[in-house]
């Protein structure tokens, strides 16, 4: 298991709340456009596992970005599961 792997597997095993995910995702759309844009990647329809892994890595500081680390630090496992399920495509 890679570092963070247990966390990621645990979150992927949760039953996601899509309605909560839709609300949480409104925090993402301030910066992440649906259309391709410069500077900030599109996050819609990424594989669910990719979104969970990214947020877990930002949350524990394994991946660095000032904005994303700050955003991820206040996300609990339930929130990450909900966001990934709403934004992502099932693997």
């Amino acid at each position: 298991m890679t570092p963070g792997g247990d966390e990621i597997a645990g979150i992927l095993a949760l039953e996601p709340d899509l309605g909560y995910g839709a609300y949480l995702a409104s925090d993402c759309t301030s910066c992440h456009a649906d259309a391709a844009a410069e500077g900030i990647p599109r996050i819609r329809d990424l594989p669910t596992g990719t979104i969970v892994a990214a947020l877990v890595d930002y949350r524990r500081g394994a991946r660095q970005h000032q904005v994303m680390e700050t955003i991820a630090r206040r996300l609990g496992d339930e929130e990450i599961a909900a966001l990934a399920a709403f934004l992502g495509e099932a693997d």
């Binding site: 759309t29 301030s30 910066c31 844009a37 500077g39 900030i40 000032q66 680390e69 700050t70």
Partner: peptide, 29 residues
């Protein structure tokens, strides 16, 4: 969080690029 004095040019250029992405996203929002 806040940017730090003395950051390298690549970080600063990336931060500028981010602001362009933000403008496109927030106006679409």
């Amino acid at each position: 969080f806040i940017s730090q004095p003395g950051e390298d040019a690549e970080t600063r250029a990336q931060t500028y690029q981010e602001s362009l992405g933000w403008y496109a996203a927030i106006t679409a929002d």
